[in-house]
Amino acid sequence: MRLHGVKMKTNPPFELVVREHGPAVLRMCTALLRPGPDAQDAWSETFLAALRAYPGLEPGANVQAWLITIARRKAIDSLRARHPVPVDSLPEQAAPIDGFGPDGLFENAGLWDALGTLTELQRKVIGYHYLLGFPYAEIPGFLGGSAASLRRAAADGIKSLRKLLDVSEES
């Protein structure tokens, strides 16, 4: 196991990056996109883009955070390819909420399982808003409905997640 913050001369062989983070990136792509070809394509595009850029990645960088950033972009590309909607620009960093930031989400296999118990609408709105960083106003372009109804779906989904994962409302 590698320790974060340990100064290394070079980053680990890319094979180890795929071995270590491949499953989590696939879970992320599957939660955001239709399971199957779309999620698999996003996974492949993520690691191919990562491989291209890998020699330039600063040694000892947080590879996981870097991969999440790339995977977010590829998931957004995939969504836009299927739902050509006018959106001004790429959403900036996802807005994290307590216990549900991108890092926590990515690490927590239990959370991915919990997401799977939500309705498809709840899972997608939560993924698009909290992980990909889309404002609610833009999500009807992908999922239909109104911003208000999607916000309600997300709130219901978050409530279920908190109950499932035993995260206090106050935190």
Partner: peptide, 18 residues
Amino acid sequence: FDAVLDSLAEKVGVRVLH
């Protein structure tokens, strides 16, 4: 083998794949 892969990444290049 993992140590050998590490050393190949360092001496040849980090883009090591099976």
